[in-house]
Design a protein around this nucleic acid. Structure first.
Length: 262
DNA sequence: AGTACCACCTGACGGC
DNA sequence: TGCCGTCAGGTGGTAC
């Protein structure tokens, strides 16, 4: 379930449980989860080493090794799980890192839409993928600059990882709901003030989500996230949320409080 | 530059 | 019970 907040939680989890632990073995259970490196090479590369540090860029997590980085992409269904008893290996574990302390870290990915790879230089990878800056690393001014002169609808722009990276389907909906903005609003119709307000709501939404460990059920009641799969009602006015298609993805909108401006 | 459509995958759910 | 379509918090390629 990974967008920026989820990846941030994974990153903190990995830091907490598995930094500086010697890797005893790497078990690639599905080689399609690897990109650009063979199972043999990956094992060769990681055995005897340790995870030294982790950082996140958008929805990507980079883990520093000696002289390169392990890159985790979580797709739509990826996650990490640290555990001891090998019998308790989670279902859909695609890659299993085992440490000399007897514990394991599983890269779990049901739908196999994510990838694990090795990269030499994260900044070069980010550039090559044409990823924009991490959305939590930019300020209001930069946000407005990046939006200016853009065609198309706001939800698509928010989800476009090349403008800035990190926001996906659910959190774009949430930020737009908080800003009382319809996802199909044309970017060019938005005033600077509206963009500034949207930016504030994006930050607030993402930071709150990180606070609650990206657990939708723990989001405060004025957020729409717990309602989209819950009662389906707008937490502000109790109106039924509408499901509309934007960018081939489903967006949840309160027809009452999210109007198309312009 | 944006958008539409398809593909990659697996699983859950509802309708017949 | 079984089959089928649809949908799902992501991303990449192609064509317009």
């Amino acid at each position: 379930m990974p967008e920026l907040p989820d990846i941030e939680v994974f990153k903190r989890y990995l830091e907490a449980v598995s930094l500086h632990k010697k890797i005893k073995n790497v078990d690639v259970k599905n080689k399609k989860a690897l990109e650009g490196i063979s199972t043999r090479k990956l094992k060769e590369n990681l055995k005897g080493k340790e995870f030294l540090a982790a950082f996140r860029h958008g929805k990507n997590m980079f883990v520093k090794m000696d002289d390169d980085f392990l890159l985790f992409h979580f797709g739509m269904t990826g996650r990490l799980k640290y555990f001891k008893d090998i019998e308790k290996t989670p279902e859909h574990t695609r890659i299993l890192f085992s440490f000399t302390n007897g514990y394991h870290l599983a890269y779990v990915s049901m739908r196999m839409l994510g990838k694990v790879m090795m990269v030499k230089e994260p900044q070069q990878y980010i550039k090559q993928q044409k990823l924009g800056p991490d959305v939590l690393m930019i300020d209001k001014k930069e946000f407005i600059e990046k939006m200016k002169g853009r065609r198309g609808v706001i939800k698509s722009a928010l989800m476009n990882q090349q403008i800035f990276a990190g926001i996906g389907n659910v959190y774009s909906d949430e930020a737009l709901f908080q800003a009382r903005m319809h996802p199909k609003t044309e970017v060019k119709e938005l005033t600077e003030k509206q963009l500034a307000d949207l930016f504030d709501n994006i930050k607030e939404t993402l930071e709150k989500a990180i606070d609650v460990q990206a657990d939708p059920g723990r989001m405060p009641s004025h957020f729409v996230i717990p309602h989209r799969r819950g009662d389906g009602l707008c937490p502000r006015d109790g109106k039924k949320l509408e499901k509309v298609k934007v960018n081939q993805r489903s967006a949840y909108v309160c027809p009452q409080c999210q109007k198309i401006s312009g």
